[in-house]
């Protein structure tokens, strides 16, 4: 029982990071039906950007609280800006010209982009795993209760950072003018253009939002695992994509739900399967395949007519 609750709590914290990345996949897929393969690797690059900021502050165990909070906020800001700018650039360079090409052409371009980003990451910080300085103290919030279940301050902050970002995103997409333009473009690009919507700007904005979310995820994931490396993006990205598909790709609420579920599934397989950390990925990818095959619209997605 304690194990179950523990896996649930760990899973929620981890899952909120997956949710942030999954939203980037879902935003882009929702608007141009492209699986943005490079998104996971963009997340990896933002974690490098965040690491650079934290290293500049020389954060250590004994750093004063003010410095820590400031460094964390600055890292968030820098990583989100960095992710947004890079993602918009990627769209401009590698995807925009292929918007009317056959469906697989931009997908292959995205795979290529993903490898280019991995290469940039390798040049930037080398091939070895990197230590991310611990900004949030290792404080067990449930420690005083002594119930055998642990919930760290880190986990709480992860969830607390994720929630306002999600609410803000929902507000932008559902309540603002540009959000309305995004929804219109997703429905019918040509008709939206005829109604005076700047399609290029709207699509670029979706990439901007997705990149910023990847930036936030880059900071929070770094605090969760305390390590990062240039190959981290592929696997994490694939898990986040699984989350987006599980929730129903194109659906924002679905991406969050899927992210939390994938986080919980990963935590559970690590805890309950024999040699679990080795098999957790296989479990998640098997779920991905099962969902795509049997319910491609995901848990919250609507059945869309086949366009291909």
């Amino acid at each position: 029982m304690q194990d179950l609750i523990q896996a649930l709590l760990t899973g929620l914290a981890l899952g909120s990071v997956f949710a942030l990345i999954a939203l980037g996949y879902t935003l882009v897929y929702g608007i141009i039906e492209l699986i943005n393969f490079a998104h996971g690797d963009l997340f990896m690059l933002t974690s490098f950007a965040a690491l650079t900021v934290l290293e500049a502050f020389a954060i250590g165990r004994g750093s004063p609280l003010g410095t820590k909070v400031g460094a964390l906020f600055l890292a968030l800001l820098v990583a989100m800006l960095f992710g947004a700018v890079v993602n918009v650039l990627i769209e401009r360079l590698a995807y925009r010209r292929l918007r009317n090409a056959p469906r697989l052409t931009p997908l292959i371009s995205a795979i290529g982009m993903s490898f280019i980003l991995i290469q940039i990451g390798q040049y930037w910080k080398g091939s070895r795993p990197l230590d991310v300085p611990r900004v949030i103290n290792r404080l067990d919030l449930l420690g005083p209760l002594d119930i055998g279940v642990r919930f760290f301050l880190r986990d709480l902050i992860l969830i607390l950072v994720t929630i306002p970002i999600l609410l803000g995103l929902l507000y932008v997409v559902n309540r603002t003018r540009i959000g309305k333009a995004m929804r219109a473009t997703a429905q019918d690009r040509d008709a939206s253009a005829l109604m005076g919507i700047d399609i290029n700007r709207t699509i670029a904005f979706a990439f901007l939002l997705g990149g910023a979310l990847a930036g936030a995820a880059g900071v929070m994931y770094g605090q969760y695992t305390l390590t990062t490396d240039y190959q981290r993006g592929f696997e994490t990205g694939l898990k986040a994509f699984t989350a987006a598909v599980l929730g129903g790709i194109g659906n924002l609420n679905g991406a969050v739900l899927g992210g939390l579920l994938i986080g919980i599934i990963q935590a559970m397989s690590e805890r309950f399967l024999q040699n679990g950390s080795a098999w957790a990925n296989a479990v998640i990818f098997a779920i991905l395949i099962t969902i795509l095959v049997f319910r491609p619209s995901g848990l919250l997605g609507e059945q869309t007519p086949d366009k291909a």
């Binding site: 994509f241 990925n281 095959v293 366009k307």
Partner: peptide, 24 residues
């Protein structure tokens, strides 16, 4: 029954699982 890009992802998932199985 899958469309082009979903098919690509399923094959990718399969391609990831196979080495994991052989490794473990």
């Amino acid at each position: 029954r899958l469309r082009g890009d979903y098919l690509a992802i399923v094959t990718l998932g399969f391609g990831e699982i196979v080495p994991i199985v052989f490794r473990n």
